[in-house]
Design a protein around this nucleic acid. Structure first.
Lengths: 122, 122
DNA sequence: ACTCTGTTATAATATAGGTATAACAGGAGA
DNA sequence: TCTCCTGTTATACCTATATTATAACAGAGT
């Protein structure tokens, strides 16, 4: 999988990494049971420090996307907690839909965006 | 309008403030032309520093939600840039929908959440 | 033995977030 | 004019976070 890091972004490197990996799982570029690259290897190919990658992996573990095996490294393993996830999603959506609403983006346009994005998930 | 700040949150105070104000505009608790409280006054009622409020207002200005008048303070004034807004929304939605997708939240459930949230915008 | 894994520890640096004081300039009202 | 309230700016300080840099350790595979 191609991971693109924007060094000019104001978003923390480890969060960019986390988000890209989550999107990689959603778009089936990573499958349940797949191993992520080792922290050292990924840090090397991206050109960042090992600890930054490790931090991203630790967050992914805490959020229930991977389990870390001493032998295989970080392995995709989704821990599903639907209630918690739905509550989190709603809270995040509230903020970004409010932004759209202020700027005259209609509900229908939002639904359209959702459809567009889900096109990529298969 | 009631502004609730969570001092235990890991989200920055000025960002919490910004988000609440944006949601306040979306839910019509603030109308175009309304003045926000002065930075000192709001800081006082919330119990935070003036500069933190000022930072929130500055961000709101840059993002096109208010204009600052030396007499009236920060006044709600939406600057609509649909293309820019749509692009931003899509990027943010991509991340949070990916989270949902990983956790087996269906597209229909997302559409449902959108409907729920829009119930409050009138 | 060697090499790979994640993990842990420690330190240094830079940036961001938040607070504290203080001062300035412009407009409103007495 | 004097006073008060506005946002704005500057400076300083403290803390937490983000990132890098080395280094070492323990477990597992070959």
């Amino acid at each position: 999988m191609i991971i693109e890091i924007d060094f000019n972004s104001d978003e923390a490197l480890y969060l960019q990494l986390r988000n890209q990996i989550i999107m990689g799982i959603a778009t089936a570029q990573f499958q349940e049971g797949d191993s992520l690259p080792s922290v050292r290897q990924l840090a090397d190919t991206i050109g960042i420090n090992m600890h930054t990658v490790n931090k991203a992996y630790t967050v992914l573990k805490q959020e229930g996307y991977v389990k870390v095996d001493r032998r295989k490294g970080a392995v995709i393993a989704i821990d599903i907690d639907r209630m918690r996830t739905l509550a989190e999603l709603k809270k995040e959506l509230q903020v970004i839909l409010a932004k759209g609403s202020c700027k005259n983006i209609t509900k229908e346009e939002i639904h359209g965006l959702i459809e567009e994005i889900y096109e990529d998930y298969r």
